[in-house]
Amino acid sequence: MTDAAAPPPPGIPPPGTVRPGGRTARVREAVLRASGDALAERGFEALDLADVARRAEVGKTTVYRRWGTPAALAADLLADMAEQSLPRADTGTVEGDLLANARLVVRTLTDPRQGRLFRALVAASLCDPETAAALHRFYEVRVAEWAGCVTDAVARGELPTGTDAHAVVAAVSAPLYYAFLNLGAPLTDHHARRAAHAAATAARAGVWSGDTEDD
Rank of each mutant, 00 (worst) to 15 (best):
E45N: 12
A25G: 05
Q84D: 11
L78Y: 00
D3L: 10
E29M: 05
V172L: 04
L135P: 04
A167K: 06
K60P: 06
E158A: 11
D189E: 15
A147L: 02
L135W: 04
A75C: 10
L183N: 06
R193I: 03
V141E: 10
T24K: 07
G92H: 12
A82P: 08
A198E: 12
V106E: 00
L49K: 03
T93K: 08
H191F: 11
A147T: 06
G16E: 11
H197S: 08
T110Q: 12
V31F: 01
G22Y: 00
D37T: 14
T24I: 10
V207M: 07
Y139T: 02
T110D: 00
A134S: 03
A155L: 06
P8C: 07
D97G: 09
R113G: 01
G59F: 02
P186Q: 10
R55N: 02
G115K: 04
L39K: 03
V106N: 00
L78N: 03
M81V: 07
V27L: 04
G115Y: 06
V94I: 15
G157W: 13
N101S: 05
P15S: 09
L99C: 03
L176F: 14
T62H: 10
A195D: 05
A205I: 06
A134M: 03
N101T: 03
G206M: 05
H136S: 14
P160E: 07
A25V: 04
A174I: 09
A132K: 11
R107Y: 04
